[in-house]
Design a protein around this nucleic acid. Structure first.
Lengths: 323, 323
DNA sequence: TTGTACGCGTTATCAT
DNA sequence: ATGATAACGCGTACAA
């Protein structure tokens, strides 16, 4: 089924069929109906390859995705879901690219004209893909803020403000020293961003901050170690479930024996007997805004390169004693 | 950068470039080097649209995916990861289609020649997409077994055997009545499959089976209700984390005060203080085998329509008292 | 072993 | 308002 067939059935020229579909030319009501009827009768659908070749537009967004993220599987799925939804709303599809393909993956999808734009997740502080992205023929959106953002479009959750809020909350509760159960890596872009802001806030508020790089399999031991020092102000930024487990194991009840705040999705923070005061990374907001921006770029609304942050907000629950 | 440019630089014809890349024609060592050097020099990459148009092959697999699955986010990610990896190994890419698009999504990607094949997840017992898939121009693989499989290619985990193993394990442990904390819906294809097998096994072993359709937010209450009946043999097929929590809350220790078996990924089953005897759905095995099959179909190895099952296996851990 | 020429199904520029 | 017609970039039958 090609547009030629439609043209034959409708008794018009092939180009008329094309113009009826694109609406880029005034068409008389009569021939419009003729063509539309033929399209319906033949259940015609334009060939994506031919359209891409002729129009230089694939209607495809490539998404470079990590498979094990500090966000967790649920966070990743939320990202993908929002991105796909937004794409479809703009008549685009989503092509999945694994982070494992690295720099080559970027080159492949952009260079081969497989896509009209790229969304890059789980950006590293010093990310080799940044270099490539700068002179790609397609607009590229970074979810995350690498060290050198010159010429880039970056958007991310405002980890800095989030860190300030969490440390501030414990400082407000009267703590003079707090432990931050932090990420074990420093490569992910937001880790140093979060950490620096947390430490600056601590310094400004006159509290001593101890950064504990959490290892997935040693959470219990590490929490026990922190508790042993008599510390009663804790910020958990990852592995919240295991941390809560470990605290309970140590006989310490959040909101009673100690104060716990977390960086975690609302679903996670409310999933425990004691709901946890937390800042959410709002993965859905981030991806929604990212896609909105991306389509503005595709529509030629040329905002220059820029770094955008999605506002942080803290929700108070019962894991911190009122004061 | 087109193959024409490469041809000019290499001093050969455009078709020679094409044949060098496809290997579908003997090429002299000399011209091969000429062409390959030119390709490298220009960092040439063939245009995907043009290639698809000429070859009638897009090198793209469409994956129709649910965003909230009974599998959980981690299970879904495992599927996507394996599918994407397998696709890349066969020089294909993955296009994401949301289950929300339903029947139209299928028609869109297949009819528009956007993809060479379709993988369909989270199939329902009575799935409207089955009808469409039968006369699609591209091979379609169902992950899951709908009621009417005539003319379809279906593959799934062997839920039937899994059910037998789990109920059998509790029967072996001497239980004369067991509660199955099951899925709350009956629409998903594997729910009735699992349930029927579980009930058949129970009947054959002379045990009374109580099927409890679990509701995400009422797990605690439902577990309490089951415990109140004095039941000490439990099969959890979903929401394992919440179930374990609820049991602990009720003061019942798996492997001590009662016997618990589960249908759950190994990672989940071992994530608790008491590791749980479980049958894993092996999402990675399922998707790997699915993709292998799919590419056999694409390569023209025409196995007829068929239903395949990925073997179940039970791993004994300490949530069941030895006997 | 290599080159020529056509077709794939659109979009878009000329004409009319 | 509509119809020819020329790209778009690649694959491949046909020639040489």
């Amino acid at each position: 089924m090609t547009s030629k067939d439609v043209a034959r059935v409708a008794g018009v020229s092939q180009s008329t069929v094309s113009y009826v579909m694109s609406g880029k030319r005034p068409i008389s009501e009569k021939t419009r109906r003729l063509v539309e009827d033929a399209i319906a009768e033949l259940t015609y659908q334009p060939n994506a390859g031919a359209r891409a070749l002729a129009s230089q537009r694939t209607q495809i967004i490539a998404v470079v995705m990590p498979f094990d993220s500090a966000l967790g599987a649920a966070g990743l799925m939320a990202f993908i879901e929002e991105i796909t939804l937004a794409a479809r709303q703009h008549d685009h599809d989503v092509l999945l690219v694994t982070a494992e393909e690295g720099v080559d993956g970027l080159r492949r999808v952009a260079g081969g004209a497989l896509c009209d734009a790229v969304v890059l997740m789980e950006v590293r502080t010093d990310d080799p893909r940044v270099q490539i992205a700068r002179d790609l023929r397609v607009p590229t959106l970074f979810i995350g803020v690498p060290a050198d953002t010159a010429g880039l479009h970056c958007i991310d959750f405002d980890f800095e403000t989030g860190a300030r809020m969490l440390v501030g909350e414990l400082a407000d509760a009267g703590h003079r020293q707090v432990a931050v159960l932090g990420w074990g890596t420093a490569e992910l872009n937001y880790v140093p961003r979060f950490r620096a802001a947390a430490e600056a806030t601590a310094a400004a508020r006159g509290v001593v901050l101890q950064w504990v790089p959490v290892e997935r399999e040693r959470v219990e031991a590490q929490v026990a170690q922190v508790l042993a020092t008599g510390m009663t102000g804790i910020v958990a930024v990852t592995q919240l479930a295991r941390v809560v487990h470990a605290l309970q194991g140590g006989g310490m009840r959040p909101g009673v024996d100690l104060d716990l705040v977390a960086l975690a999705p609302d679903a996670d923070a409310t999933g425990f007997p004691v709901p946890v005061t937390a800042v959410s990374q709002h993965p859905r907001d981030v991806s929604r805004q990212a896609m909105q921006w991306l389509f503005e770029l595709l529509d030629g609304n040329h905002h220059g390169p820029e770094v955008r942050r999605v506002p942080a907000s803290l929700v108070r629950r019962s894991s911190v004693r009122s004061h």
